[in-house]
């Protein structure tokens, strides 16, 4: 059986509502979203931490399911919001990790033109880790929910419990920082916003 996105979204709200009477139905939410949540946390904190945090995300979600806003439809943004708060308990590890990726990305010696181009790209990308580490936690959460979770701005706002305008402000700040780290003009118009 195939699901369209909207049918699946409607199903999430229905399943969560049903799980208030039949708690074991919540396992369907787990089956649908566990891999995505794990992948998101893995990319921020690594796979081992993701094992624990993804599991805890669904326990927290289960305990708070009565507060799930059925108007949201899909539980995806809601779960990402919970996972993001849990990631927040590991800020130091996350920042250390970004700084470590910068060291790994440092370019090696190069000889030919192709090597130099590759090295230049690698050098620019090497700035990403420190840039991510330097972001304020709130700005980083917004940036990574958009970039990794592929959430829209309204979904990010709902996931983090902040205003839509706050998401815009935080994302703008974060993107400028990242653009500066990549060596592009941070004041350039942002052409690829995701709404």
């Amino acid at each position: 059986m195939t699901h369209t996105a909207s049918a699946l979204a409607a199903d999430d709200a229905e399943v969560i509502a049903a799980s208030l009477r039949e708690p074991e139905r919540f396992a369907e939410i787990f089956d649908r979203h566990y891999d995505d949540v794990h992948r998101y946390v893995d990319r921020r904190l690594g796979a081992d931490a993701a094992d624990d945090i993804a599991a805890e995300t669904f326990l927290v979600a289960f305990r708070k399911r009565a507060g799930f806003d059925a108007a949201r439809g899909s539980a995806r943004g809601w779960l990402y919001g919970i996972a993001t708060r849990l990631v927040g308990r590991h800020r130091r590890e996350e920042v250390r990790r970004y700084r470590a990726t910068a060291r790994l990305d440092e370019p090696a010696a190069h000889e030919g033109h192709a090597d130099r181009v590759t090295a230049a790209v690698a050098a620019a990308d090497a700035g990403l880790g420190p840039a991510l580490a330097a972001l304020s936690p709130g700005d980083r959460d917004v940036l990574l929910l958009v970039a990794l979770g592929d959430l829209s701005y309204p979904e990010v706002a709902a996931a983090l419990g902040v205003r839509y305008g706050t998401v815009c402000s935080r994302l703008s700040r974060a993107r400028r920082t990242v653009r500066a780290a990549l060596g592009t003009d941070p004041t350039d118009d942002m052409e690829h916003d995701r709404g």
């Binding site: 891999d35 992948r39 990319r43 993804a54 970039a147 990242v178 592009t184």
Partner: peptide, 16 residues
Amino acid sequence: DELTKVADHLTPERAP
């Protein structure tokens, strides 16, 4: 764009 670069930069270590 920079969002794609961030997404490419932060690759997952492994599948669950």
